[in-house]
Amino acid sequence: MKDLNSDFFYDIALDEDNKICSVFWADARTRAAYEEFDDVVSFDTTYLRNKYDIPFAPFVGVNHHGNSILLGYGLMSSKDTASFVWLFQCWLRCMRNKPPIGIITDQCRAMANAIQEVFPNTRHRWCLWHIMKKLPEKFQGMSTTQRSEGMNAFFDGFINYSTTLQQFVVQYDNAPRVKAQKEIQVDFSSLNMKVTCGSQSPIERQFQLEYTHARFEEVQTEFRSRMNCFIKETVKDDFFNTYTMKEERMWEGKCADKFFKVQLDPETKHCTCSCLLFEFRGIIYRHCLLVFGQEDAYSVP
């Protein structure tokens, strides 16, 4: 294991013949990014296999713009449990022994075994895209238009199946560098220009000040959707305020209303909803926004 100047990190695994079988590396930019965005990591080895049959295995996170970011890279000659354990241990050391809160992978048993061993307290979930991809095989005639934002979003135009290892070493850094430049431009735009609020709500104003453009525009969609939501019942006890929420919806030309339970802790201002869409999408949802609007003494946590 090598740790150069505490910034660039790499490790190499050798086989019984002293030949390289796996490599891991991460630069200073990816290590710094993980300090800020360590909540969920996606790991996938299905994107690219070169002519040496060595799959490229990037670690991917999500930044404050809702965009994917690279958090480490691996090349593996085998996809057994021992190889994944080695790679995950390298990544964990690289990230100063700070495991992610959650990790998303495909349905690889060897990978799942390695996650259980190296990240025992990390929540492991299967990738929705891989699940949806299999639906046509499992259900006759069913299809999906969901598109995976795969690793091609990073590396198309830089590397491909025919790329040699020597070319890969030269080219791999170009894609993250271009992506980092674009993120700097988006950061500059978010800091120096504001998306106009669509209401006089002080809560929306708070999001405008704190969120990046992309995230704030998502929240604005939820603000507009509040008009379809109504509080039907409120129950207050010593611990929580519980709201029964009705959301009016249309499905195939017919009313398809749904009901949800929203809980607000008056002391901590923590709000949760039975729809679980905050946990799934990572932004505050319309049901909680309506509750915060009713509880105007509270600010968004």
Rank of each mutant, 00 (worst) to 15 (best):
A175M: 05
E137T: 10
K182I: 06
R147G: 05
E222W: 03
V178G: 08
M227V: 15
V118A: 06
A180I: 05
E210S: 14
D156Y: 13
T212E: 02
Q167W: 08
A114N: 02
C229Q: 03
D173G: 10
P136Q: 03
C197I: 08
G157D: 13
Q200L: 13
Y211C: 10
I115L: 08
T163W: 02
K194Q: 13
R123A: 06
S225P: 00
H124P: 07
N174D: 06
N121R: 11
R147P: 00
K232G: 05
C197D: 04
Q146P: 00
G198H: 09
E217G: 02
I184R: 14
K138T: 06
I131K: 08
C229F: 05
E183H: 03
R226T: 15
K133C: 02
V195I: 11
A214W: 00
F207N: 05
K232A: 05
T164K: 11
R215F: 05
W129S: 03
K179L: 15
Q171S: 13
E233A: 09
C229M: 09
S162Y: 04
R215W: 01
I203Q: 08
A114Y: 02
T196D: 14
Q181H: 09
W129P: 00
F168D: 05
Q181P: 00
Q167E: 15
E204G: 01
V118W: 03
A114Q: 04
T122P: 04
A114D: 03
M227P: 06
L165R: 13
Y161L: 09
A180Y: 09
Q181M: 12
I184S: 04
T212M: 12
Q171A: 13
M151R: 03
N113M: 11
S189P: 00
D156R: 15
K134F: 00
E204K: 01
L165G: 15
T221P: 01
Q167V: 05
E218W: 07
M132L: 15
Q181A: 13
T163F: 02
S225W: 01
T212D: 03
F139N: 03
K236C: 11
Q220F: 09
I184N: 00
R224E: 07
E217V: 15
N152V: 03
R224I: 11
C229T: 10
Q208Y: 08
R125M: 04
L135T: 14
Q146F: 14
R226C: 12
Y161G: 14
A175K: 04
A180V: 07
I159M: 06
R123G: 02
E233L: 11
V178F: 14
L165W: 05
I231Q: 10
D173K: 15
H130C: 08
F119W: 04
V235C: 08
W126C: 08
V219I: 15
P136I: 12
K182Y: 07
E210C: 07
E222I: 09
E233Q: 12
T234G: 00
Q220D: 02
S189T: 13
S201F: 11
F158H: 14
I159R: 08
F154C: 11
Y211G: 07
T145P: 02
M227N: 13
